[in-house]
Design a binder for these strands. Sequence first.
DNA 1: GCGCGAACCGGATAGCTTTCCGTTACCGGG
DNA 2: CCCGGTAACGGAAAGCTATCCGGTTCGCGC
Lengths: 218, 218
Amino acid sequence: MDVPQPQGAHLPLASGPDAEGSGRAGRTGRAERADAADNRRRIMEAAARIVAEKGPGALTMNAVAHETGMGVGTVYRRFGDVAQLLFALLDEREKRFQEAFMTGPPPLGPDAPPLERLRAFLHALADRVTGQLDMMLAAETAAPSARYSSGAYATMHTHVTVLVTRVRPESDAALLAHMLLAPFMPSLTHHLTRDGGRTVDEIKAATDDLLLGIAHPR
Amino acid sequence: MDVPQPQGAHLPLASGPDAEGSGRAGRTGRAERADAADNRRRIMEAAARIVAEKGPGALTMNAVAHETGMGVGTVYRRFGDVAQLLFALLDEREKRFQEAFMTGPPPLGPDAPPLERLRAFLHALADRVTGQLDMMLAAETAAPSARYSSGAYATMHTHVTVLVTRVRPESDAALLAHMLLAPFMPSLTHHLTRDGGRTVDEIKAATDDLLLGIAHPR
DNA sequence: GCGCGAACCGGATAGCTTTCCGTTACCGGG
DNA sequence: CCCGGTAACGGAAAGCTATCCGGTTCGCGC
């Protein structure tokens, strides 16, 4: 069956010569072959080019295959579908964001009280989603459920879970974390900002209201 | 251009011989022609049959066309895409739910304090989503953004907005309403219940935690 | 009844997705 | 250096989506 492995270095946050971070087959195989890794890179480049030139809507597996000169099957072998390709592209741009909230300065990073960090994180998330809205929307449109199996989501969820646990140890933090992330789905953000004429600041304000429940002691 | 009009009688909640409720072109046209209305009905019937027999995944425009003996173009003329067809099917099953929270007995219906109603509504929503998960997931997969332009969502959003306004008049109730509905997206519910092994009761409990912020006076 | 324009029907078409499998290219061990 | 097993490549094929447009049908107004 041979499930494709999009590969996005996430939690490790390694920043070496990048020689690593791409190309293992989970725990169950050996390293990705050199030509395969090369194709993966060429595919991502082509995909980024297409997105930059014609927008995320023009990103099709066919177009990528044509752009790289490969066969369609090859593209599908590396990335199972358009959604995975888009998530891989997003993952690359996500690294800076992850560093910010995992190791950066307060209020986003460590050295700040949990509740404040949580608030800062959600505000930053609001900015990030509106900033990358087109690509995120395309990714969600291609496969809504893929969101939850992406490395980026896992990282954010873990982060929020930890913070919620600190603030309200008695709650079901993992579940609450999902619910706090849900309002930032690309489709809703799109609806609010593009159709509904809402601003990011309004969204942040409403987020604060939502946080009151977690914030309040009793 | 002639945008298709899925037609789901929503707010009116009319329950007459059902002779009405299907078939106008918004405010800008005249009634749907008899043969067209007839085709709409036949399409919905065929769609319902396909879903019942082979699951929502098997619902394609092609399949419906074949099942009804119509051309594909006709199906597309009535319902712009699979998502609209699915939403139309869902709308039919939604009526009972709408009656429950709009005119039914407490705690869901009127005659209950707003906060209690809000809580009851979200709990009922959790049940409803898990109950119809397959179809809702299919609809979301077909077009994630369609959710927000569906009549069912509009109704729910209005309802929640009203309740939130009663509880916290100074807040941006409309925005908060969106955020309170977001955790019940089919894709998240699917992730939680099917992949995450969560139960509806756990989800309800977490919902209560989320509501604390709205609930609390200060 | 009747005529006419709008609305509708249906199938052909183009492009995309995803699978499948024969062929080809890598690469670790001998 | 060569060899064999394995992974990867590539393109054909099947099915779906969505659009388009010539021919047909409805139903309003007379």
